[in-house]
């Protein structure tokens, strides 16, 4: 069983996706690899909880996002088996992530653009005259 799985994994490595002989296309992940990925994910979770105790200021969000991205990368590459998947599937999912980046990036750029004119919450700005609101809406 384990011998055959090694066989398949070599096959998968060589071809990028597992199309073997006589219609054999399954690629069972070796157990040690699953466990290694799981423990790596656990360690990274502990790391992100640990780092949240320090006050890193503006860097804090980037630190936690970096760790989260590494974890997500591990999940996608190994648990979701993308490393051995067809290149088309890789393009599909990575393409979606690029579109998410575009979506978030342009929205944030836009938000920063009108940030100074915007009053988010009138209850916080009760002393301000309503004229400012009119200026915003034009």
């Amino acid at each position: 069983m384990s011998a055959s799985s090694v066989q398949h994994s070599d096959d998968g490595h060589a071809h990028g996706h597992g199309h073997g002989h006589d219609g054999e296309f399954s690629h069972p992940m070796p157990i040690w690899m699953l466990l290694a990925v799981f423990f790596a994910l656990l360690i990274l979770t502990c790391l992100t909880v640990y780092q949240s105790q320090f006050d890193l200021g503006n860097m804090e969000i980037w630190a936690s996002l970096t760790i989260a991205t590494v974890k997500a990368g591990l999940v996608i590459a190994f648990f979701m088996h993308l490393l051995w998947d067809k290149p088309l599937n890789m393009i599909i999912i990575l393409g979606s992530l690029i579109f998410v980046a575009l979506f978030l990036g342009f929205t944030m750029m836009d938000a920063d653009g009108y940030r100074e004119n915007l009053i988010m919450n009138e209850t916080l700005q009760e002393s301000q005259p309503p004229a400012v609101n009119v200026a915003v809406s034009k």
């Binding site: 799985s5 157990i31 466990l35 994910l41």
Partner: peptide
């Protein structure tokens, strides 16, 4: 997720 990946195997 680990058990799910194991289930696939």
């Amino acid at each position: 997720s680990l058990t799910m990946a194991w289930a696939v195997r």
